[in-house]
Structure formats: structure tokens, C-alpha cells
């Protein structure tokens, strides 16, 4: 069963197009990573799924219903981002108790255990917390709510490395105990790739890739060697990345469509083949130029 169905979804803010003709389907009980550059439309897409904003065109169904302004979708999803705000009149404990009344599947014991583990004090106020602690607290709510659809929009903003690791581990453990559909948007793909089953890559409001993480890991390869040999092997394949190493050596990244023959040829010519990490791959695919920032400084 699919939890989210999206058909040619578009969203425009005035003249600016935030999303353009995005189509995908997210299956039940999967963890999907939503990856993209700043302004690629990640948050817009997640807010449409959550039912906060209305799509301009296209069709979207969450739990087979139109999410915008739907109480049913609202009750079965939780949307966690760093814009969440809680009134200063409530203590952290009050907030957890209020959250518990709203969500049917809320796990108070988990909430309290996480609360103690991350050493929060019950009498603290939300607005006194630091950025990273706010994110941590939001994460506790997001996990404890146990919503069938859990959306984390850049949940790790401001968290330090060890809290981030704890968070990913907590997410995975709770997911294994209580499978549900989770969408996680992030810039840091290398940190979350062990967690993810699928990756949805957005570029300038359009769907760039939607693959399983295993497919993504084999999606691209680097070729490294002398300029002529590398160019020879690459042929007319699409080049995602290019970097010159000294005068006569070259490193390029291409889509992995090499045949066995080409691989043998490469070995003979002394061209090294290595896989492109998913993190780099997503950077290259969403870069506007092949050379990246180097092109800016390269005036020749």
C-alpha cells in the first residue's frame, strides 16, 4: 500500500515556481530521504504532504486523502521542523503532556526516557533552549508521537555530532520496533544513508532521482588517470563532475553504464575506477556547473 501518491505536483509562490511537475509514490513503512540543495523545494513538498499549504497544480494523496486542511491527515502525521514554536507559559513537561493528548499512539514512556537521556529538566521553558536542544526536543516529540507518517524537515539543525548520532540510532530502533513511514529531509546524506531505504533527490523544484539507496550507491563512478585515457573511456557518456589533477591527469565522474569490456579496457590503460559516494553524487547531480565552485575562480 502506498502512503503518499504524488502526480505532477506543482507549487508556485506568485511567479516563483517552488515545485514543478513532481511525481512519486512512497510506500508504507519505508524511510525515505529527501535530499536537495537549499531552495530545491524540499520544505515546500513536505508542507504540502503535511497539509499546511495547498498545491497549485497536480494531485496529491496522503492515506488516500487530499492532505490540505484535513483533520484525518493531521491526526496521522507529525511534521517536525525547526520552526516549531511552543508557548513560553508551558514547561517542557507540560508540552509533552499536551502532545500526548493529541496523538492516539503517543508513547509517554519513550518520551520520558528520551527526555531524561538528553538531560532536559521538566521545568525548563522551550524558548530558553539552545538551537540544538530545541531540535532535540522536537525530535523527542516526533518519535514519541508514533504517527503512521512521520516527517522530519532538517531535524538535526544545530545538533552536535553525538546528539545527531543518537538521534539516528533512536530513529532506527524505534522504526524497527514500530514500523511506520518516515520522511527525512537533510543536507547530510552521508550521515543518514545507512538509515534510508529510498532517496528522493530534488533539483530546482523538479524530481531529479528517486532510487533505492543501493541503486544510488552504484549510480556513478569516478574515472581517474591521464587525460587522454580518461576521455577515451568516458566517450560520450554524460559527465557529472570534472577536476583536473596537475597538467596531464584528470578525475571525472560519470553515470555507471560501463560495460565489462570498457572496464577491462580501463584497467589496461591504467585508469582507476572507483564508486562515487552517495553524498558526492547528490552534490554533483544538483550542481549547476560541472566543475562546481572551482569554475567561479577559474577565469582562464
Amino acid at each position: 500500500m502506498s502512503v503518499i501518491e504524488c502526480k505532477e505536483l506543482s507549487k508556485a509562490y506568485g511567479r516563483k515556481k517552488a515545485l514543478h511537475q513532481v511525481s512519486f509514490t512512497i510506500k508504507e513503512n519505508t524511510i525515505t530521504g529527501l535530499i536537495g540543495r537549499n531552495g530545491a523545494g524540499k520544505t515546500t513538498l513536505l508542507k504540502i504532504i503535511a497539509g499546511f499549504i495547498r498545491e497549485t497544480e497536480g494531485e496529491i494523496n496522503v492515506f488516500s486523502r487530499h492532505p490540505f486542511n484535513s483533520l484525518f491527515v493531521s491526526a496521522n502525521r507529525i511534521y517536525i521542523d525547526d520552526q516549531m514554536n511552543f508557548p513560553n507559559t508551558l514547561t517542557l513537561k507540560d508540552i509533552l503532556q499536551s502532545a500526548a493528548t493529541f496523538y492516539g499512539n503517543w508513547d509517554q514512556i519513550l518520551a520520558e526516557r528520551l527526555f531524561d537521556y538528553f538531560s532536559f529538566y521538566p521545568t525548563w521553558r522551550y524558548q530558553q533552549l539552545s538551537k540544538g536542544m530545541k531540535s532535540t526536543f522536537n525530535m523527542i516529540i516526533g518519535l514519541s508521537a508514533r504517527c503512521p507518517l512521520t516527517i522530519f524537515d532538517e531535524p538535526t539543525t544545530g545538533m552536535d555530532a553525538s546528539v545527531r548520532k543518537d538521534f539516528y540510532r533512536a530513529l532506527l530502533k524505534d522504526y524497527l520496533d514500530h514500523p511506520r513511514t518516515i520522511i527525512l529531509s537533510s543536507h547530510l546524506l552521508n550521515e543518514i544513508e545507512d538509515l534510508l531505504e529510498d532517496v528522493l533527490l530534488l533539483k530546482d523544484g523538479e524530481k531529479c532521482l528517486y532510487l533505492s539507496i543501493d541503486e544510488l550507491k552504484e549510480y556513478g563512478v569516478y574515472l581517474k588517470g591521464s587525460v587522454n585515457c580518461v576521455r577515451d573511456i568516458a566517450g560520450d557518456k554524460e559527465i557529472m563532475y570534472e577536476k583536473s589533477l596537475g597538467n596531464d591527469h584528470l578525475l571525472i565522474g560519470i553515470k555507471n553504464t560501463l560495460t565489462n569490456l570498457e572496464i577491462e579496457q580501463a584497467v589496461l590503460m591504467g585508469v582507476q575506477i572507483s564508486p562515487i559516494s552517495t553524498d558526492d553524487l547528490c552534490t554533483y547531480l544538483t550542481n549547476k556547473t560541472i566543475g562546481g565552485i572551482d569554475d567561479v575562480f577559474n577565469r582562464s
Binding site: 500500500m1 508504507e28 491526526a75 496521522n76 496523538y103 503512521p148
Partner: peptide, 9 residues
């Protein structure tokens, strides 16, 4: 599958 909650207004 986590059960979906029906809520009343």
C-alpha cells in the same frame, strides 16, 4: 502497519 486514527472534530 501502524493503525490510522480516526478523529472527531
Amino acid at each position: 502497519m501502524m493503525s490510522l486514527t480516526e478523529v472527531k472534530l
